[in-house]
Design a protein around this nucleic acid. Structure first.
Length: 571
RNA sequence: CGGGGCAUAGCGCAGCCUGGUAGCGCAUCUGCUUUGGGAGCAGAGGGUCGUAGGUUCGAAUCCUGCUGCCCCGACCA
């Protein structure tokens, strides 16, 4: 392709709205253009990247035995009412009516549609297992679309759904998908990690996320450098190996004016933050014998909201009590809460259970208890894993200590079980001729997000550094002052032809620009290899080669240059 | 949706406080020169200052409503 045909449109400055580097570079390089909040046009150069990503995903899915189909983006409300997600999904589901006043939505995901297909088309266990996938545009009316294409409202996803007669079969396909995803991201030359993930309200035994590693990633990943353990911070178990020491202090009630925060407690009373306890009050679930429930973590620890919401006594989604509600149930404001004389159920984190001689609010304004000890001063409440794991915690697999990484979630594989097959009554006849609910798995890759994540992971001051397998072009062919030399023009055209005939994806910069402009543009859009052809070089019989991340260029004999590039591509 | 901010040419910004001819850089167009790291000179085009109202002789500027966008929170590929 020639730059003159590509509509290459680059800018030196990024629009002020772009915050993260991938968004800035995608706008500057002309990959995408914004239409409205969370809606983007993929310009020719951006679309080439998308197609490359799709191609690899498609090949790996096909290789793993999945069958591609294409479902409608618009879905009828009936199906969603049947699964009860019409009411559960909330405002993230974009709904509208047609001319007959029938309800529809833009598909945010396709469990309902595929399960409907399955219950109509699958009759016998002999047809199982089966794994369908599609690569398709989704719409989720996100509260806050952000970071350009990283979290847009309209995006392209590869979503796959598998159907099984048994858990063993589901597990096997799940494992196949795990390998397919590993192959997929490996082939894209991305640095990634598969991590255990929270399976949320759906339950199920298996849920793994695939994260592209990048310092700017939104998700924290806890992993064991010496072992195989890796988990999303939402899921990572926080282990406490300490046990409570014998009490050495008396319990005492202390006046603590102007001490509403843990930090104030530490500052005003010279208290170690590890000797303080933070109390959070949230709404209780129906299982609890109260409207509210108190959760406690050590002063310097962070409540893990996913773990909290998963606790049976806690209302999901997690809803913190308002200050007014706190006053009603505890008799004091949020700055003076603690376990003693708190008339609601209490759940404490494992670390809190191992504390002694600690301080916490007295449930009276401006008063705290110091020297609290479990067993002596009050009964030990229920203990649970409530906090975020931290670097240095023991690894749950028993191998060494946890370390932290940041990642961008680009894939998720999930064992759904029979949640949707039950709701939509998707059954097949088993070997005894009896109806049996199929179990399901689902497997997603955010195609558009992969493009953004690849940039977050691979860029420098000059622009994008595409990994070769997903680069819009493999080679940039840059002629120097072609307009002044018919010889050079002819040579450049010939080389362009030869590269194309050799199957090389080459972008020929045929604009009448100064060299600096062309170099800067080719680097900004991130083409992995560059060939510079000039009269000067041709006089010596050479073409100049430079890799996108190379410090300097090297001369390659004109006659060898096509083979040289082919060898590079095969490497 | 709650909290904060912004809206002036395609992009980045100044002007607003203290009302009176709308400006700068990049980009675009023309001409000449230049040509191995985002050229120079000369010229040109392009803005109902987000929108609706109000105050005023006069509003980009002051006031009010609305809309859009960005940032922080909960959600997710």
């Amino acid at each position: 392709m020639r730059t003159s045909q590509l509509h290459l449109s680059t800018t030196r400055e990024a629009p002020a709205e772009a915050e993260v580097i991938s968004h800035q570079l995608m706008l500057r390089s002309g990959m995408i253009r914004r239409l409205a909040a969370g809606l983007y046009t993929w310009m020719p150069i951006g679309l080439r990247v998308l197609r490359k990503i799709e191609h690899i995903v498609r090949e790996e899915m096909n290789a793993a035995g999945a069958a591609e189909l294409l479902m409608p983006a618009v879905q009828p409300a009936e199906l969603w009412k049947e699964s009860e997600r019409w009411s559960q999904f909330g405002p993230q589901l974009l709904r509208f009516t047609d001319r007959h006043d029938r309800d529809y939505c833009m598909g945010p995901t396709h469990e309902e549609v595929i399960t409907d297909i399955a219950r109509r088309d699958l009759r016998s266990y002999k047809q199982l297992p089966v794994n369908f996938y599609q690569i398709q545009t989704k719409f989720r009316d996100e509260i806050r679309p952000r970071f350009g294409v990283m979290r847009s409202r309209e995006f392209i996803m590869k979503d796959a759904y598998s159907f099984h007669i048994s858990q063993e079969s589901l597990q096997q396909t799940f494992d196949d998908m795990y390998r397919a995803y590993t192959n997929t991201f490996t082939r894209m030359n991305l640095e990634f990690r598969a991590v255990q993930a929270d399976s949320g309200a759906i339950g199920g035994s298996g849920s793994m996320e695939f994260h592209v590693l990048a310092d700017s990633g939104e998700d924290a990943i806890a992993y064991s450098p010496g072992g195989d353990y890796a988990a999303n911070i939402e899921k990572a178990e926080a282990i406490c190996t300490d046990t409570a020491s014998e009490p050495t202090e008396e319990l005492r009630l202390v006046d603590t004016p102007d001490t509403k925060t843990i930090q104030a407690l530490v500052d005003n009373f010279d208290m170690a933050i590890e000797k303080t306890v933070k109390t959070l009050i949230c709404r209780a679930s129906e299982e609890a014998d109260a409207d509210f429930i108190a959760l406690m973590v050590r002063g310097d620890h962070q409540l893990n909201e996913v773990k909290a919401a998963n606790h049976p006594g806690v209302l999901s989604p997690l809803t913190f009590a308002t200050e007014e509600e706190i006053r009603q149930v505890a008799g004091a404001g949020p700055g003076s809460l603690g376990p003693i004389n708190l008339p609601i159920p209490v759940v404490i984190d494992r670390t809190v259970a191992a504390m002694s001689d600690f301080g916490a609010g007295a449930n009276v304004d401006d008063k705290h208890y110091f020297g609290i000890n479990w067993g002596r001063d009050l009964e030990m409440p229920e203990v649970a894993d409530l906090r975020n794991a931290l670097a240095g915690d023991p690894s749950p697999d028993g191998k060494g200590e946890l370390a932290m990484l940041r990642g961008i979630e680009v894939g998720h594989i999930f064992q759904l079980g029979d949640k949707y097959s039950r709701a939509l009554n998707a059954t097949v006849l088993d070997e005894n001729g009896k109806d049996k609910l199929m179990s399901m798995g689902c497997y997603g890759i955010g195609i558009t997000r992969v493009a953004a994540a690849a940039i977050e992971q691979n860029h420098d001051a000059n622009g994008i550094i595409w990994p070769l397998p997903i680069a819009p072009f493999q080679v940039a062919l840059v002629p120097i002052n072609m307009r002044r030399s018919d010889t050079l023009r002819a040579e450049a055209e010939t080389l362009y032809q030869q590269l194309q005939e050799a199957g090389v994806e080459v972008l020929f910069d045929d604009r009448d620009n100064r060299p600096g402009v062309m170099f800067a543009d080719m680097e900004l859009i991130g083409i992995p290899m560059r060939l510079v052809i000039s009269d000067k070089g041709l006089a010596k019989g050479v073409i100049e080669f430079k890799g996108r991340t190379d410090e300097s260029s090297e001369d390659v004999a004109r006659d060898d240059v096509v083979d040289f590039i082919k060898r590079r591509l095969e490497a």
